[in-house]
C-alpha cells in the first residue's frame, strides 16, 4: 500500500473520532464533510482518472435522494433504500455512460450537465410520486433524540465515505485504474493496444455515480425534506470539481483533503458573508484557477523550492 493511501486511511480514522470532541454542530459539519468527500472522490474516478469533465454529480445525488426518499415513504428500511439507490445509480450510469462518454470535451460536459436538468425536470413533473416542486417530506426515524440521530447519520455517511475510499483505492491500483489512465492520456492509442475503452468508461461512470447516489439517499433521510432545486442543484456538480482542483486532480488523498478544506472555507464564508457567499465562492474558484491550477499538491516543499529557484 502506498504512503498516500495509508495517510488517507489515517485521515479517515481521525474524522471518525470527531464525535469524541464535538457536539451537534461538529457532527453536522462532519456529516457534510463526509458527503463532500464522497462526491469529490467519486467525481475523481471519471474526472481525474479518466479525464472526462463530468458535471453529472448533482444528477446522481438527486437521483439517490429521491429514490431513497420515495422508498422511505413506502416504509422500506433506510439501509435497503440506500442500497437500492446505489445499485440502480450504478446500472443507469453505466448504461448512460456507454452513450454519453462517446462525446469528448465540451460536448461531454454539456451532456452531463443536461442530465441534471432532465432529471430535475422529470422529478418536478412527476408530482404523484415525488411531490413535484413542493418537495418531499421524509418520515422521521426512531425519534431517539437529536444528538443520537446526528451521531447515527454521521456514521452512516462516514461508512459510505470509507466504502468510497476503498473503492477508489481498489480502482487506482487495478487494471481498471491503469486503463483509465491510458484513456486520459490517449484514447485512440488505448483502443489500439486492445483496451475496450467504452467498457472501461462505463464502469468508471457507474462507480462514480454509485456512492454519490447512496450519499444522496442518506442525505434525504438526514434532512427529512428534499425538493428538486435543492438536491439537483448544479452546485453539487461544480463543488466536487473545485475540491478536486484544490487538492490536486487524480490523487485520492489530495482530493479528500481538498473536500475538507473546501468545506472549511465554505463554512467560514457562509457564516461571515451570508448574502454574498456564492459570490465569494466564485471568487475563490477564479483565484484558485489563476494561481494554483495544480492544486495543493503543487505546494509540497520540494515543488515550492523549485518555484523559488525558478523566480
Amino acid at each position: 500500500m502506498t504512503k498516500s493511501n495509508i495517510a488517507l486511511l489515517v485521515l479517515l480514522a481521525v474524522v471518525a473520532s470527531l464525535p469524541l470532541f464535538g457536539g451537534a454542530y461538529a457532527l453536522r459539519l462532519g456529516t457534510i464533510a463526509c458527503m463532500y468527500a464522497i462526491m469529490a472522490l467519486s467525481w475523481n474516478v471519471v474526472g481525474g482518472f479518466a479525464g472526462y469533465p463530468s458535471f453529472a454529480t448533482a444528477a446522481f445525488f438527486g437521483f439517490g435522494a429521491y429514490t431513497a426518499g420515495v422508498l422511505l415513504n413506502k416504509g422500506l428500511p433506510l439501509w435497503l433504500c440506500v442500497v437500492i439507490a446505489a445499485v440502480t445509480a450504478l446500472l443507469i450510469a453505466a448504461v448512460l455512460g456507454a452513450a454519453l462518454l462517446r462525446l469528448r470535451g465540451h460536448y461531454f460536459a454539456i451532456a452531463s450537465l443536461s442530465l441534471v436538468e432532465v432529471l430535475r425536470e422529470l422529478v418536478n413533473n412527476a408530482t404523484d410520486l415525488t411531490g413535484g416542486g413542493m418537495g418531499l417530506n421524509i418520515p422521521l426515524g426512531s425519534g431517539s433524540g437529536v444528538l443520537a440521530e446526528a451521531m447515527f447519520f454521521f456514521y452512516a455517511m462516514w461508512i459510505l465515505l470509507l466504502l468510497t475510499v476503498l473503492m477508489v483505492m481498489a480502482v487506482a491500483g487495478s487494471k481498471l485504474g491503469f486503463g483509465l489512465a491510458c484513456i486520459r492520456q490517449n484514447e485512440t492509442a488505448s483502443s489500439m493496444v486492445g483496451l475496450n475503452t467504452t467498457l472501461y468508461k462505463s464502469i468508471a461512470f457507474g462507480l462514480s455515480a454509485c456512492f454519490v447516489s447512496a450519499a444522496g439517499g442518506v442525505y434525504a433521510a438526514w434532512v427529512h425534506y428534499i425538493d428538486p432545486s435543492d438536491v439537483f442543484d448544479i452546485l453539487y456538480s461544480v463543488k466536487p470539481i473545485v475540491m478536486a482542483l484544490m487538492g490536486g486532480l487524480g490523487s485520492p488523498l489530495g482530493v479528500a483533503c481538498g473536500a475538507f478544506l473546501y468545506l472549511g472555507l465554505e463554512e467560514v464564508v457562509w457564516r461571515n458573508y451570508i448574502q454574498i457567499h456564492t459570490g465569494v465562492l466564485g471568487l475563490i474558484i477564479v483565484l484558485l484557477l489563476l494561481f494554483l491550477p495544480h492544486g495543493l499538491i503543487s505546494l509540497r516543499p520540494a515543488n515550492l523550492w523549485r518555484r523559488v529557484k525558478h523566480v
Binding site: G179, A181, N186, V193
Partner: peptide
Amino acid sequence: QPFAEFTALDNVAAAALFSQ
C-alpha cells in the same frame, strides 16, 4: 502515439496488459 505521462515501461505494459 505514446501515453505521454507513463514511463516507457508502463507504455509497453499497457500494450501487454490489454491485448491479452
